[in-house]
């Protein structure tokens, strides 16, 4: 490529009137060729442009991993909540029905009757114990003397 054309292109380039194709030609020229001294300064510029394209991020992009943790967590929360409700349903006592209440009342009355009977009989025994006390009193008298 003649120098004349390159200089023309450079003028156009600095006025932002070059097409991408023309800019590619400039880049190619400055990267590959030995450049006359008055154009030496542009060489660094165009080499930088081509080199910079190789500048890439070293860190891999993560997308799924973060997302996955979320999805598992969501599922686990759902399962935990379900288990919780099932447990409440199974193990909490139900409120008693009317029939059950009546049965409980009858049972209560029966037991009270039985307790009453026992109490009466115990009182009978008390009389006998009173007699025992008398016996003790006499023994004390004897031993004191």
């Amino acid at each position: 490529m003649e120098l004349h054309r390159i200089e023309n292109l450079l003028d156009k380039y600095f006025d932002s009137n070059t097409t991408i194709k023309e800019e590619d030609m400039l880049k190619e020229y400055f990267v590959k060729n030995d450049v006359p001294s008055h154009l030496q300064d542009y060489k660094a510029m165009f080499i930088y442009f081509t080199q910079n394209k190789k500048e890439i991020s070293s860190k891999p992009i993560q997308v799924k991993i973060k997302k996955n943790i979320w999805r598992v967590n969501w599922l686990m929360t759902a399962v935990a909540a379900l288990l919780f409700f099932v447990a409440i349903y199974k193990f909490l006592p139900k409120s008693p029905t009317d029939v059950e209440l009546k049965e409980a009342q009858i049972a209560f009355n029966e037991t009270q009757k039985i307790f009453q009977l026992i109490a009466n009989n115990l009182n009978k025994g008390n009389n006998a114990i009173a007699y025992l006390n008398e016996y003790e009193n006499t023994t004390k008298k004897i031993f004191k003397k």
Binding site: Y13, D15, S16, N17, D41, Y42, M45
Partner: peptide
């Protein structure tokens, strides 16, 4: 606006390089 800014940027780089 892009063309103007680009032209300015290129010229600034050139001047500073020189």
């Amino acid at each position: 606006a892009i063309r103007v800014s680009l032209s300015r940027a290129r010229k600034t780089i050139r001047e500073n390089l020189i």
